[in-house]
Design a protein around this nucleic acid. Structure first.
Length: 111
DNA sequence: CCTGTGACATAAG
DNA sequence: CCTTATGCCACAG
């Protein structure tokens, strides 16, 4: 329907992001790798920037490799992202996800 | 076609 | 821990 259903890369990022289980997180690089563009981690983040307005995309579950909420500044307010994560049972201290080892969800491994 | 940009990743100091 | 620098790639203008 419409002129273009898929924007490809962006849509794919959103698709993977939607698959992130509740109370879990993943990294930009992991998603990028899952898409076959392991070196385009920045594009994933950029896609997130364009995800504003999409309730289907839990961007708050996507963090950087260290589990740091690097993109929190792109959410409304200053601590919305952290609140969303804590709301799912994820402990966040100083913008960093705790127990990342267990919470990390790898789309390559889990899928 | 070229340039700028960006919520990363990695390395180096 | 911090900042800088480089690579890397998709997209917008």
């Amino acid at each position: 329907m419409g002129v273009k259903d898929n924007d490809n890369f962006f849509e794919r990022v959103y698709e993977v992001a939607r698959l992130i289980p509740y109370g879990r997180v993943t990294s930009y690089g992991a998603i990028a790798k899952c898409l076959g563009a392991a070196r385009s981690a920045r594009m994933v983040g950029w896609a997130m920037n364009a995800c504003k307005g999409r309730d289907d995309v839990p961007a708050h579950r996507v963090v950087n490799r260290k589990g740091v909420l690097t993109g929190k500044h792109h959410f409304e307010g200053t601590n919305l992202m952290q609140q969303l994560l804590e709301s799912e049972g994820i402990e966040v201290i100083d913008n960093q996800i705790q127990n990342l080892d267990e919470l990390f969800w790898d789309p390559m491994t889990e899928l």
